[in-house]
Each structure stands twice: as C-alpha cells, then as structure tokens.
Write a protein that binds this DNA or RNA. Sequence first.
DNA 1: GCGGTATGTATACACCGTCCACATACGTTA
DNA 2: TAACGTATGTGGACGGTGTATACATACCGC
Lengths: 215, 215
Amino acid sequence: MTKRLRSKTPARTTYRHGDLRRALLEAGIALARAGGPDAIVLREATRRAGVVPNAAYRHFASRQDLLEAVRSAALSELARTMEAEIAKMRRGKTGAEAARANLRAVGTGYLRFALSETGLFRTAFATPEFRGFIGDPARSGESGLNPFQLLSKALDEFVETGLLPVSRRPAAEFLAWSAVHGFAMLVIDGPLHTVPRADIDGIGARVIAMVEAGL
Amino acid sequence: MTKRLRSKTPARTTYRHGDLRRALLEAGIALARAGGPDAIVLREATRRAGVVPNAAYRHFASRQDLLEAVRSAALSELARTMEAEIAKMRRGKTGAEAARANLRAVGTGYLRFALSETGLFRTAFATPEFRGFIGDPARSGESGLNPFQLLSKALDEFVETGLLPVSRRPAAEFLAWSAVHGFAMLVIDGPLHTVPRADIDGIGARVIAMVEAGL
DNA sequence: GCGGTATGTATACACCGTCCACATACGTTA
DNA sequence: TAACGTATGTGGACGGTGTATACATACCGC
C-alpha cells in the first residue's frame, strides 16, 4: 500500500486562502474520481489545498460532510451525462419513437457515466443518505432534474405514448433503475470486471432491452 | 461515533491459542454481519480473540486477506440461503413449472439474504476480486454450487423446458443478476432504504417478474 | 531429549479523523 | 480612522488504525 501524497499548493503567501471550501471540494472530487469514496481523505484534501488539516473543519463538519458534498457533485455530473445522451439520441424523433429513445438514453447515459467515471459513480452511491435526494438542485443537471427525475420523466412519456399501461407505472423507476444500476455494479466491482468493454456494451444493451420488454 | 470494543476472551491461560485462524475469521464475520466490510478491523478481531494485534499476521497476510476470507464465508452463506429457498419453492413441481419456480427461488433467496444479512451481503460484494469466484468450494453451499452457479443452473433449466430460446441463453445470468442485485443495492443503501418491508417485497416480486418477461 | 519451526508478544512507525487552544486578518461600526 | 468582534487558518495533541521488525515461547519430528 504505497501512498504518494503531495501538495499542489505547498506554500501560500496570504494567511487566508481565498476560497478554501471550493479548493477542498475540488480536491475531494479529484480524490473520489481516482479512487472512489474511500479515497476521500480529509488530510490529503487539505494538503492539496496547501492548508493545515484542521482548516477543513471551518468548512466541513466532518469527513462525512465533505464526502456528502462530493457526492452531490458526482450526482450532478451524472445528471449532465444523462442529459447529453438524451439530447443526442432523441434528435429528430417524436411520439413513441422519441419515448423509447429517451428511456434508452437514460440507461446508456447512466452506464456511460458509471463505466467512465467509476470513482465518482461509486461515490455517488456510497451512503444511504438519500433523504433529500429528490429535488436537491445541487444534485441536478442543467435541466434542473436529478438522475432519478430524468428517469421518471422518461417513464411518464412511456405512459403518455401508450407504451406502458398506467397500472404498471407506479414504482417503475425502481425496476428500471435496479437493472441498470445492478449491471453497473457487476461491471465495476463484480464478475463482469474483467470482461472486455465491447462485450460489456453488448450485454448492457440487452439489459436495457430487458427493461423495455419486461416493464 | 461511539465505539464499544471489548474482548470476548481477555486472558488466555495457554501461550498458544488453539485455533486462532478460526477465531479471527469468526470475529471478522461477526463484525461484517453487524457493520459491513468497513467494520472488519484487524485489531478488533484480535482483541476479540484475546490476542495481540500482530498475531493475526500469522494467519492472514493483511486486513484485506481477512476480509477476503470473510467474503468467502458470506458467499457461502448466501448460497445456502438460496438453496433453502429453491428446495422450498420447487417442492412438487415438474417441467416448466419447476423451472419457473426455481428461477424465482434463486431471486427471492438472493433478496432474502441481502435484506436480512445486510452486512454480510455488502461484504460479499465489497471488492472486485471475482477471479476464482466460479468454482471455489469455500464459497459454495451444500450442493457445492456457488450463487452464480445456482443461477446458471436455473437458466439452463429455462432453456431445457423451452422457456428461453437457446439464442438468448448466453450471458443471461448477467441480465437476471443485474436486476436483482441492483434492486438489493437500492434497498440497502439507496432510495428505497426507507420504504416499508412489505412494499419492498412487492416491488421485489415485480423485479423478478420483469426478468422472467424480459429475458 | 534436542533442535527447528510455527505461533504469539513487544515495540515502533506512519497515517488517519478530530478536539482544543491560539493567532491572524477581515468587515462593521463608532 | 481606530477598535473590536468574528471568521478563518495554525499548532499541538489524542486515540484509533494497519503493518514492519525483532524477540519469546511451545509444539513436533528426529
């Protein structure tokens, strides 16, 4: 377990930092990106900000509090990745065709983020603190919707275009989410970990197809 | 974060312990059961075994190594829970009906374990070390099959009884597993965390139905 | 009965999160 | 403009962790 911990900003001329909270948050995000939630270590974040360990406590109540802030940022970035995928896949489609493309985009965007930003993705789901998950602007994308809400919207459209009977709409989010989230987990640190990316994409597409067919 | 760490066996009359490896493993299992993978702390395990911290290194190369051993035990117990569910649900059924019951039992057994032994379940999937997952007797139930193999067998039966076309058999494990595993995750430390158990069981049944319909 | 090896002990190190007391600079108000 | 209160960063300490290295003890095969 070799650790290579170095300061980005070893010495500061001013006594005050300027924007330490943001600096710590960004250090935390960088750590999470590289190593997941466990890699977010307070002392290292302060080191990178060029500040003494305890300075962090002026801006975050605890390590957990910093982690929570990083988590919000990760969820927000996830939402943006999903939005980008939606915009791309939906182009030029209408009605049921658009609804299908939309739901697929939600799934593939989710997986794209999970597989490319593994550390942040794992951080985003590293704690049971989901209270306030719905409707927190800090966790949303540019549309103002968080990942969960993007999925909900896609499913609403499924009902509107007659692809899903109203009777099966309730809790449908969780069916779809379960499949895609579980798949991501199995790839990230499960039995699919060593499978080549091309195969992963193929199986991922089948997972999304399963959701469409089985919802 | 109050910690109540006490020795089970504070003083030993003999210099040798007798079966320290087992004692450490069982302490590790107890810790994991109560608090998940992060709760497995080497020093506490040795404390419970009534032994000095470094004694652990005679039996486990590192904390990670102990964690790995606990993980195997957890997977084994998961397999046994699934086997019990299979035996229960399959009773008196044959052919396609038995195959369906079998697959459902695999899913519900998995969920039963995930929701009742949360700490062990989270430990079972706490690391990307899935090399050797398939076919390790230490991770199997009484049938000699591990959780993955139990699922595979259930899907084979789906093909044999004509419930699933051979063309869609490859990698079907991962589709089914994704859905159920993801659902478990969303319940354990996701947005379904606060939903009452009765509702969870209902949605869980729909997840399994989705798999059957969409496979 | 002896010697080697397996097992447990003692001591120490670096790292972590966090508490407390202190120092410095900034903003407000007189 | 000077004084002061408050926000922010520092210094030092404590108990916790995993783990390395050197030493002590007991068991086992000859």
